[in-house]
Design a binder for these strands. Structure first.
Lengths: 158, 158
DNA sequence: TGATTTTAGTTACAAATGTAACTATAAGTA
DNA sequence: TACTTATAGTTACATTTGTAACTAAAATCA
């Protein structure tokens, strides 16, 4: 399935799937940065927090973590900064004072969200439009499959 | 091609391609780390330098950069550490004293290379073996296509 | 040839990220 | 209830990574 045989001397990094996906992911990352980092001064983590809260207002930090596989420290930092910028608000949790519900602020936060999402989607669309429609579906299906496969290898005896 | 419409409120990060590829790439990264980071104390960049020099002995740092899209500072640091550990050797460039040819040391360096490559390939194989053979080909083809697409969007008016 | 610009690679500093320890609260248990 | 353990989230520190400035050598050019 790629040029690599089992002979070490023939190993080609360029054909190695983890390397290629890492490259691709970095390229896309740079690409969408144009949608949020440059114009709105947001880090990747901050954008993800905004994206998740835009869709699911009132989540706690832990719930964001469950949804995004981001680190809890990273989330804490992102929320702190977003709050300081008046983009995110926190409110008390009724029966647990350790937690806090988070949501985009009605004006600045949600406004930002509404401006970023179309840009992000536009980038994704421009990208996918370079593939034939059937390839677009295939790609997403295979990415899902591969993610499953990779996850299963993490647990003992995948 | 995914669940995202143009309505911001419906945006689902989980369906957003750049996000999914970033997740996938991170999962694979952790996965192959078992092949080189834990057992041999190598960073991703260090492993890449070793991989490239294993295949193409005598490259200069700039040539490594051209082949791998890694940053020149990152390469410089990786080479420095690998050299200190006796894994990489440098030799003078005949007609340009700014450059240096790099290669794995005959014993320790090449030895390491020969031990890592099978582990890396084994991980890749285990991963790909979870996909049907025709899906394996498809995946690699689509990754290539998408990389091309992403690259073309970087230059003015892709 | 001498002056200027480019290139290879390194060093120094700043910013981002990861890891561990910590605080506060809640839950479990005896 | 008192005591122990677990959880949510933060803070502090170490490590990694990125950016800019720098050094040395080579190439260009007048």
């Amino acid at each position: 399935m790629n040029k690599n045989t089992q002979a070490p001397e023939d190993f080609e990094l360029e054909s190695f799937l983890p390397y290629r996906l890492s490259l691709l992911s970095n390229t896309l990352s740079e690409g969408i940065a144009v949608a949020y980092r440059k114009p709105f001064d947001l880090s990747v983590t901050e954008w993800r927090v905004i994206a998740v809260l835009g869709r699911f207002p009132g989540l706690t930090a832990s719930e964001i973590r469950l949804r995004t596989a981001m680190d809890k420290v990273a989330i804490s930092r992102a929320v702190k900064r977003l709050q300081a910028r008046g983009l995110v608000e926190r409110s008390e949790h009724r029966e647990d004072r350790r937690r806090a519900h988070l949501k985009l602020s009605a004006s600045r936060g949600r406004n930002l969200f509404r401006r970023i999402v179309p840009r992000a989607l536009e980038y994704e669309n421009r990208l996918l439009s370079k593939l034939a429609p059937e390839d677009q579906h295939l790609l997403l299906r295979l990415v899902s499959k591969l993610q499953q496969a990779a996850d299963s290898l993490k647990s003992p005896e995948g």
